[in-house]
């Protein structure tokens, strides 16, 4: 049980650190505003989603 928890924490930390560093790494020149035109699903966390900002604002208004 303890082994599992330690193992789990190690994995989660590795992921967290990689995620953090990835988001700190600047995007290369000319790629700052890249967007794919994805309209398939509504994962609002997804960066490719075109209505990302709009959906957020609507949710906030309701709340």
């Amino acid at each position: 049980m303890i082994k599992a928890i330690i193992y789990f924490i190690i994995l989660a930390v590795i992921y967290g650190v990689l995620y953090y560093f990835n988001h700190k790494t600047p995007k290369p020149e000319g790629c700052e505003n890249l967007r794919s035109s994805c309209e398939g699903c509504n994962i609002t966390s997804c960066m490719a989603h075109p209505n990302n900002d709009r959906l957020f604002k609507e949710e906030n208004k309701n709340a």
């Binding site: 995007k27 290369p28 000319g30 790629c31 890249l34 967007r35 794919s36 997804c46 960066m47 490719a48």
Partner: peptide, 11 residues
Amino acid sequence: LYKNLGIYLPL
């Protein structure tokens, strides 16, 4: 490479 594949990776 990032220009071509980068946007699809988070997906």
